[in-house]
């Protein structure tokens, strides 16, 4: 499975060092490998097995073959509602977060006075996370008399019941995600820090302007990090759970427009105890996300630029 996904642009290993490389390689990855085999493998394998059972947490399980998948694809209306909500969320929220994060990271990659304060301010929303206070706060902002309605009122718009309106409720969650762009931003910032300053100096000598420098130096050298953020945000986008869980109390309301996949899966698993069905849902998602990730990896050879491959 992994071979299909990952395409490292590899050099031919030198034969003489091959055996030693294996020892050293496994030595370095051994912490992860051992922890995975001890703690991660069993739950994964078990959940895969459960996908073919009607496992009910309180009742136990029977093998039912592919029934869960049949039910999911052909009988369960809410399942498709959850797919719709999730896809919409991923398509909008993931690019939004990435663009915000990159723009702000570039803005803050400077030595001006006060930049430490700005960084803290832009990162701050991300540390409030998924606490119950965030739920109250976010509801307050989107309330009838809240900040957002006040702002749109200034442009002559009528107030909206944001969290109750089937067209708009998901936007409150998308905006929450966009507002909490701190983690990709910091990763971009760390990536920008890694770009050697000399490159810009020599580009300046060649007479490049800011835009040219961005496309010729900054972006190419940042692509490994852009790639990482894209893949991780994509995965995280499909698994998004906490925000919807705290803000709509996991109800998926209104009209299932905020019923994210992971939320529905959780409800099936822990509200009606249908863990077999939830496991089947989880593995369908894993396959879909893995395929999408594989596609991103496949394209990466064309646009991701690794310094370590240069000059070889």
């Amino acid at each position: 499975m992994g071979d299909a996904i990952i395409k490292f642009p590899t050099r031919q290993p030198k034969k003489s060092r091959f055996g030693r490389n294996n020892i050293v390689g496994y030595l370095f990855i051994s912490p992860w490998l051992i922890a995975f085999i001890l703690f991660g493998l069993i739950p994964m394998v078990v959940s895969f097995g459960l996908a073919f059972t009607n496992y009910h947490i309180l009742r136990g399980w029977d093998f039912i073959g592919l029934d869960n998948f049949h039910r999911m694809f052909y009988e369960d209306r809410r399942y498709w509602n959850s797919v719709r909500a999730t896809v919409k969320y991923v398509i909008i929220a993931v690019p939004l977060r990435l663009v915000f994060a990159l723009a702000v990271a570039m803005l803050l990659n400077t030595k001006r006075r006060g930049v430490a304060f700005y960084r803290a301010a832009f990162y701050a929303p991300s540390v409030v996370g998924g606490s119950i206070a965030v739920a109250v706060m976010w509801r307050e902002i989107f309330a009838r008399e809240g900040l957002v309605n006040y702002l749109i009122g200034q442009f002559g718009q009528e107030s909206i019941w944001w969290l109750g309106h089937p067209d708009y409720a998901i936007w409150t969650l998308i905006l929450l995600a966009a507002w909490q762009f701190g983690s990709p931003m910091l990763i971009f910032l760390a990536g920008l820090k890694q770009i050697p300053g000399q490159l810009y100096e020599s580009a300046s000598i060649d007479g490049a302007n800011g835009i040219q420098k961005f496309f010729r130096i900054t972006f190419p050298l940042l692509t490994p990090v852009v790639f990482f953020n894209l893949v991780m945000q994509l995965i995280a986008g499909f698994m998004t759970f906490t925000q919807a869980f705290i803000i709509t109390n996991g109800s998926g309301r209104p009209l299932d427009t905020t019923l994210f996949y992971a939320l529905y899966l959780y409800k099936r698993g822990f509200e009606t105890y249908e863990m077999g069905y939830a496991s089947a849902m989880a593995w369908v998602m894993l396959v879909v996300v893995a395929l999408l990730t594989a596609i991103v990896f496949a394209t990466s050879a064309r646009w991701v630029y690794y310094e370590s491959q240069e000059g070889k």
Partner: peptide, 10 residues
């Protein structure tokens, strides 16, 4: 119900 949903869980 739109209004109620917007205010639910408070």
């Amino acid at each position: 119900l739109e209004e109620t949903t917007a205010n639910a869980n408070t």
